[in-house]
Amino acid sequence: MTTFIDYLLGGFSSGAVIALFALALVLVWRSTRIVNFAQVGQAMFTTFIALIVQQATGSWFLALLAGLVAGAILGLIVYALVLRPVQRLDTSGSIIATFGVLISLQALAAMIWGGEPQSFPPPVANDGLEIGGRIWPISWYDVLVYVVTAVLVVALTLLFTRTSLGLSMRASAFNPEVAKLSGIRVNRMLAFGWALAGVVGAVAGVLIAPTASLSPNSFDILLIFAFTAAVVGGLDSLIGAVAFGVGTGLVLALVTGYGEAGDAPIVVLILLAITLVVRPGGAFGRGKSRAV
């Protein structure tokens, strides 16, 4: 039983980060109906920038701040240069364009910072906490990850449901023409959605970097898990993305713990396939996703 709990606790951390990436994908999807494959590439790039700031100043907080700003700016750049012109195209056009951005960002990062994995120091201890005489697979750093993720999710939910800005963003996403006719500056809202997604991705990148290593390709696999979580969650639902993001992390941890690490992607694939067969629009998709 305790091993089971250990696995679950371990899964929560990676699940939280997968949830953040899924959240970023959902934000972009909601604003522009595009699945942004470049999201993890943007996160990787901004995390490198955060690492530079960390190395220069020694401050994790400043690094996070730099990552956030860089994430927003990079999100805006990708949107303005690539996706805004592409929007008129079909799904495959946007998928291919974002994929092109991903490859370009990875190559650029490899050119600038090299392919070798670099370590990103955590702001608080990343050692297992000792509670009640035994060491649990959860550290103060994990706690920080949970708290930041929870705060972000709550803040985003409030933004979308309780503010004029959130309403403008939702209207722009659902029906750009009606939004324009209502006086909403739709292009600004879409760009804001991309910037916001960039920020969330940057947070995810800075949070995962200390427990992982940072290299141009180090977030690739997270893209697939986050994508799975976002798709299973219905792509439109913030709550779905978070729930299935964390869920994916837990499943991965349990499969890795009890079975073999190599089985994890198969299990994720099976979950994805079953969900899509039962509900082709995702578990939280189609009509149920209004609230958030």
Partner: peptide, 28 residues
């Protein structure tokens, strides 16, 4: 048969999952 009912991003998601999941069956 799995994919025929799926729209753009969901189809992309399923096929990406297949790209990752299927080859690793070999490891089993």
């Amino acid at each position: 048969l799995l994919a025929a009912r799926l729209r753009g991003p969901y189809l992309a998601g399923l096929t990406l999952g297949i790209a990752v999941g299927l080859p690793s069956i070999a490891a089993r």
